Amino acid sequence: MFNEASGAWKVILGLLFFPVLFQQDFLTFALGADDLFWIALLKRLFLLLPVLSIILACWVTIPCVLSVVFRAQRTEFVITFFLIWWDLGKAIFSFWGGILKFLLVLVTAIMILLKLIVLGIWVLIQDLFFIPIQLVKNLGVGVFDAGIPWIALVLTLIWCLIESTVFTFVTTPLVMDTLSNLTGGGISEAFLRIPLFLFLLFLILGSYAVLATWSDALASRKIGTIIKIGIIELVALFVEVVFLYREFVDSLVPWFDQHTSGD
């Protein structure tokens, strides 16, 4: 358009449409199409919006300047006009400052997040390492502060294990014969001893638990409980004598006979 005009018209058109003289170059520079990716990204981030706002302000300036001739309060209008351009400059610098502040806050937040992740992983590792120790400590404190007679309890458990082992050994043939007669087939002795041992162990532990309850009933003089537990103990005594101690004595007879015959 400017190339076709000449003389005074070219000057007038250049003044009226002066943004055309530089807006294409400004936009090309702000877009950075021929630059590297990160340079183009920075240009579009920091320069594209300010360049567009300046170009728009230049186009708006043209009718504003032309309208000064027809305005009544020209002085106030001109002052306001320059103040708006001043505000545009401040807005551009505020825009750049806001972007820099955002980037600073983003970097700080990322660093804090990484710090939290590292600290969280470190605390997790410490917890995984020290939790077993803490559990053992709490268990030990809870156990030894409970007022339980541990010596008597341990000795009772040891005696129950010994008694279960002995009765398992002496009653295995009887149980094997009984089950063989019921099933009509042979049963492995090793396969039978494990469940028989567990059964006898729980039976013996239960008998000691009943004795402890009977002792508490005697101390509190609860006649009904004493009679009930007494009947249960008599039945248990009969079963143990008939099925357990009888077999135990039968297994000891050959041993006594062997040692007495030598004398």
Rank of each mutant, 00 (worst) to 15 (best):
V235P: 06
W9R: 10
I194V: 10
L179Y: 11
L139S: 07
G140F: 07
F37P: 10
N3T: 06
L196D: 01
F81T: 03
L116C: 12
L41I: 08
T213V: 04
A72D: 06
W255E: 11
L135W: 15
T213H: 13
L155S: 08
K90G: 02
I232K: 13
K101E: 06
I84M: 12
R193V: 05
V118G: 13
R221G: 02
W96L: 07
L116H: 09
A212M: 07
L88T: 12
V68A: 02
L196E: 02
S261N: 05
I54L: 10
L201N: 06
A30D: 00
T260A: 03
I39E: 01
L15D: 05
I12W: 05
V154R: 09
P19G: 00
F46I: 11
V141Y: 02
T165Q: 02
L234H: 04
M111A: 14
S261C: 03
L153Q: 11
V20Q: 11
V235M: 13
W159L: 14
L218A: 04
V51C: 03
L244D: 00
G186R: 13
E163M: 10
I162T: 10
V170K: 02
I125K: 13
V51F: 11
L182A: 10
L155Q: 11
A57E: 08
L31A: 08
L211F: 03
F93N: 07
I158R: 12
T225S: 06
I117A: 15
W38L: 15
V143M: 15
S215T: 11
A146L: 14
M1N: 04
A217C: 08
I12V: 15
P50T: 14
I39R: 13
T183S: 06
V143D: 04
S220K: 14
E76C: 05
D145N: 11
E240F: 15
F167R: 00
E240W: 10
V249Y: 00
L201C: 02
K115D: 12
T260E: 00
S164T: 14
W59K: 10
I187D: 02
G184L: 07
L196W: 03
I12A: 13
L13C: 07
G97K: 10
M1P: 09
E233I: 13
F243A: 03
D216W: 08
I227F: 07
T260F: 11
L47N: 02
Q126Y: 09
D250P: 00
P149S: 06
D127F: 15
F202W: 03
N3M: 08
E233Y: 06
V60F: 09
S261H: 12
L56M: 11
L128G: 01
L203V: 06
W214K: 12
